[in-house]
């Protein structure tokens, strides 16, 4: 197995190199200095700022420097717009917050939509299945942003008015586990509802595929109970698509949380990235997107390893 992991890591090195280069190359199309200096800056001031930030060097040189920093996990670069704050410190603040938002959301989404997928596949073709499928398509056709806006309106504002005390925060964040439900539960629920449509459809298709397999027919004719067939036979065999799906959803949750973090004012990774974009903070953009990509590559490799763990028929080679 370790040989497999090692080979996959080697294979993904050019991918990672390309990502870092791509981000820097895209960013090189924008000159952040005039916006940072304001309207009244003279040509010399702009030029000296450019030298100070290292933007006068050619792209290749900046690329090598940045790559070296990322590979050595050296995140001590200071933010351009907030001197004193390093990228590493920003990461240390933002990562736990983002995880507190995305991990519960991912867990709940997966459990709930696998269950609905099972029910839907069990009732295939009947009205229950049809209405579930139709509800999923309806849910998928509404913009994420609308869910967030109405989620905030109903969850924070109307619910708070109904019981005369705030249940969920409208905006803002405070650290600490005791504050988690107040600030995070509503965004988590919105995130779950949004991803439900896609996931339910997918898991239903997986389960339906399984129901047509021979071993299910065998199990039925043996007289196995419904719950045993659904939860033991089918779920066990549907594990590979489920794992793949969860792993593919991981980076998607990061992106999903960008909007949620912005709208609810939660200072996670997404919010930090957006702030960096608004402030033209190139080091943060470059390092954050490299970290996103690195995590994605790791999760893909992990997916393959998990295949072998959950399905002994899969051989890693």
């Amino acid at each position: 197995m370790w040989a497999f992991v090692f080979r996959r890591v080697i294979y993904n090195i050019p991918v990672f190199l390309a990502i870092v280069f791509m981000v820097m190359w895209i960013l090189s199309y924008r000159d952040p200095v005039p916006a940072m200096m304001g309207k009244n800056a003279s040509e010399e001031e702009i030029q000296s700022k450019r030298v100070e930030l290292g933007l006068d060097k050619p792209l290749a040189e900046r690329y090598v420097t940045r790559l070296k920093e990322i590979v050595l996990l050296d995140f001590s670069q200071e933010l351009w717009t907030m001197p004193g704050l390093t990228v590493g410190e920003l990461l240390r603040q933002a990562v736990p917050i983002s995880l507190a938002l995305t991990l519960p959301a991912l867990f709940l989404t997966t459990v709930i939509s696998v269950c609905i997928g099972l029910i839907s596949a069990y009732a295939r073709g009947r009205w229950l299945d049809r209405s579930l499928v139709f509800a999923a398509v309806l849910g998928m056709s509404i913009s994420f942003l609308v869910y967030i806006i109405f989620g905030q309106y109903l969850g924070s504002y109307q619910l708070g008015r109904l019981v005369n005390r705030p249940i969920f925060a409208i905006y803002g964040y405070e650290p600490g586990i005791q504050n988690w439900a107040y600030y995070m539960l509503l965004p988590v629920m919105i995130s779950v509802i949004v991803s439900m449509g896609y996931n339910t459809r997918f898991y239903r298709a997986v389960m339906v595929e399984e129901t047509t397999q021979d071993y299910i027919t065998t199990a039925w004719s043996k007289g196995a109970t419904t719950s045993k067939i659904m939860f033991v036979h089918m779920l066990r065999n549907a594990m590979i698509p489920i794992i793949t799906r969860v792993m593919i959803t991981l980076p998607l949750l990061v992106t999903g949380s960008i909007l949620l973090e912005r709208y609810f004012g939660i200072p996670g990774m997404g919010e930090a990235l957006l702030n960096a974009i608004n402030n033209n903070d190139f080091p943060v953009i470059e390092i954050f997107s490299s970290i996103f990509a690195g995590l994605f590559i790791c999760s893909i490799i992990l997916t393959d390893v998990l295949y072998a763990v959950f399905d002994p028929r899969v051989r890693l080679q």
Partner: peptide, 8 residues
């Protein structure tokens, strides 16, 4: 291209 989250 697919290793960076789409929205990012």
């Amino acid at each position: 291209f697919s290793s960076i989250p789409n929205l990012v």
